[in-house]
């Protein structure tokens, strides 16, 4: 049974490669047959070469690190405040009444609309970027934390009362673990948006970072640089997601029903 399953998965994976290969093939073909200008559509191999060159010159690491630093700081700022406010809002009806409507109202504004305002107040330096990323990280975190914590069933509240739990222990042993699936969803969404906002902030104005790489490529009309940036943006976003998924599995081991169930 296991072997059959394995084979099936391999076949599935092969099916999944068809489209990318076709796209790459058509792309390479159209360039080699001069169907369109190399200035507009560079061949995949040139893209690969550009990436290698960027890596060799050290530009790649430099810009990736710059972006990662921004994403991390912005995410920590926005995510942490979202987490804390979410918990407080879920536990205190008063705070929920005070902050809930304001946060909901502010959420109606598309995040990128804040960018011009932020730049006017804070300039276009590092701090403005952190701030902008933090806005993106904040919303999913505050909503998912709120939802998770307010969804803790009454029966667990009762249990904590019966065992005479103090506030802090109640929070760490019951509320947060119970809300964890929702909080982790928040973290994932939050980090994903942070990444998008970093790239956006860098496109808007920056002298380093993956987004900068793309703007620069555009301004010197080097489409290979733009596409290299695009690939980097996708790959880094993907890797962050994979890391989070692994972390999630570790944290939520208890949710997995085990195969050999005891009767």
């Amino acid at each position: 049974m296991k072997i059959v399953l394995h084979r099936l998965q391999l076949k599935d994976k092969l099916l999944g490669v068809i489209v990318p290969i076709l796209v790459l093939g058509a792309w390479q073909y159209s360039v080699s047959q001069k169907l369109c200008s190399e200035l507009i559509l560079i061949p995949p191999l040139t893209l690969l070469k550009t990436l290698v060159e960027l890596a060799q010159s050290g530009d790649l690491t430099l810009n990736i690190l710059a972006s990662l630093k921004r994403v991390l700081i912005g995410f920590l700022l926005g995510g942490t405040s979202g987490f804390v406010i979410g918990i407080f809002m879920a536990l205190s009806p008063l705070l929920n009444r005070i902050f809930g409507p304001l946060i909901k109202a502010l959420q109606q504004v598309p995040e990128f609309a804040w960018m011009p305002l932020i730049i006017m107040f804070l300039g276009i330096d590092e701090f403005a970027k952190f701030f902008f990323v933090a806005i993106g990280a904040f919303y999913p975190m505050v909503f998912n934390t709120y939802q998770g914590v307010s969804g803790v069933p009454e029966k667990y509240h009762e249990l904590a009362r019966v065992f005479e739990f103090k506030r802090f222990r109640y929070l760490t042993k019951v509320i947060i673990p119970c809300a964890l699936p929702s909080i982790i969803t928040g973290i994932r969404l939050s980090l994903g948006l942070s990444w998008m906002f970093v790239v956006g902030a860098e496109l808007f104005g920056s002298d380093s970072g993956v987004g900068y790489l793309m703007t620069w490529g555009r301004s010197v009309f080097q489409i290979d640089l733009v596409m290299a940036g695009l690939v980097l943006v996708g790959v880094i976003g993907f890797v962050m997601n994979v890391i989070l998924e692994i972390g999630e599995k570790q944290f939520l081991l208890w949710r997995e029903p085990v195969n050999g169930r005891h009767a």
Partner: peptide, 24 residues
């Protein structure tokens, strides 16, 4: 099986990342 992997791979690129390319 044919389209999902490609779809998910492309989806990894944040929307904003496409901007410079589609402008070009």
């Amino acid at each position: 099986k044919i389209f999902a992997p490609f779809f998910h791979a492309i989806r990894q690129v944040p929307m904003i990342g496409w901007i410079p390319l589609i402008i070009m």
